[in-house]
């Protein structure tokens, strides 16, 4: 009796859930373009590298903001911790494996940021949104001042010099045109994006969306809300740490700037610009942000923030869901979830 109405509904539901996580061709096209762009526009490799790093950082913020509803103004702390971890490792190894190995640097940066993320998650997850904003901001300020204070380790205001990562996978040397850097960063972004994509479509991911949607009900279903939020906060911290590590390795330096407040704020802006809770919003938002900066500042060096601000206001007020929301509307796709 496989064609009873019940069985038909079961099959329909099964197919529906399967379709949610399916790769669609625009996604494949986007990633193909991301890799191809390095070959097509080698003179833009440094810009592509920057975009990839920014996108990864924004992606990590989208994981907590878009999927778990945790607002943060201090996400840059993890980015900075990752940058210093990778920078110090590369410096310690003096350009030779194993210590200067970039992959090791990424793992170490991710792990360090994750540990700090887990430790601070207990503070961050208390209280309401405003409390969260202030606590995350406060933690970021503390880390910034620590990096400034311990200048014998971090180089203080002069920055960390002599960051010399070894060849990527022992094969590819970082070149001055940034081609290796761009391939390296885009690849890391792609891999971590795929992982994030799996996670947001998993039972764990749907429980986060449920918590964001209605924490009261999630608890009544038996979801350990705090533990789940701590887990995603820790993961997002690791992602941000890896993004920071990419910046340290590909630019061969770390300055106090990695811990500046504007990084956290810019990233929040990028996620909103791209579309919160879409993953792709982080990537598209980062590209749009960087290209807008490049474009506008080629006309007016000083006032680019004016135009950025104007675009942001228009987008937030009149186009719900950022660039991804705009695309969904233009292609006539119902904005889902």
């Amino acid at each position: 009796m496989s064609d009873t109405p019940l069985q038909a509904d079961r099959d329909k539901a099964f197919a529906f859930l399967k379709a949610q996580a399916r790769w669609r061709w625009p996604e494949i096209a986007l990633w193909a373009f991301a890799f191809a762009s390095i070959l097509l526009m080698p003179s833009r490799a440094l810009l592509i590298n920057e975009i990839a790093i920014l996108a990864l950082f924004a992606l990590s913020l989208d994981l907590i903001l878009g999927y778990a509803g945790i607002v943060s103004l201090g996400h840059g702390a993890f980015f900075g911790v990752g940058a210093y971890t990778a920078g110090l490792l590369a410096k310690a190894g003096a350009g030779a494996a194993p210590l200067s190995d970039p992959t090791l640097g990424l793992l170490a940066a991710g792990a360090t940021a994750a540990m700090i993320g887990y430790a601070t998650s207990f503070l961050v997850l208390r209280g309401n949104d405003l409390t969260k904003l202030m606590v995350t901001l406060g933690i970021a300020l503390i880390f910034q001042e620590l990096a400034n204070k311990f200048s014998d380790i971090t180089g203080g205001a002069d920055g960390l010099q002599g960051v010399t990562p070894a060849k990527v996978l022992g094969l590819f040397d970082f070149d001055i045109y940034g081609k290796t850097a761009a391939f390296y960063s885009v690849t890391v972004l792609f891999l971590l994006f795929c992982a994030a994509r799996v996670i947001v479509h998993s039972p764990f991911g749907i429980s986060l969306r449920a918590i964001k949607g209605n924490a009261l009900r999630a608890r009544a279903i038996g979801v350990p809300v705090d533990a789940r939020l701590r887990a995603i906060y820790t993961l997002a911290a690791a992602y941000a740490g890896v993004a920071g590590a990419l910046l340290a390795q590909t630019t061969a330096q770390v300055s106090l700037d990695v811990l500046e407040f504007h990084r956290s704020a810019d990233t929040l802006l990028i996620v909103v610009l791209g579309g919160v809770g879409t993953l792709y919003g982080a990537v598209v938002g980062a590209a749009a942000f960087k290209m807008m900066y490049d474009f506008i500042s080629s006309y007016t060096q000083q006032y680019w923030q004016f135009w950025l601000g104007l675009i942001l206001v228009v987008l937030v007020l009149f186009v719900r869901g950022g660039i991804m929301g705009l695309i969904a509307r233009l292609t006539g796709q119902e904005e889902r979830a």
Partner: peptide, 11 residues
């Protein structure tokens, strides 16, 4: 008790 599984999609 499968709510924390993050490595597989739902369904």
């Amino acid at each position: 008790g499968e709510g924390a599984q993050f490595w597989r999609r739902i369904g």
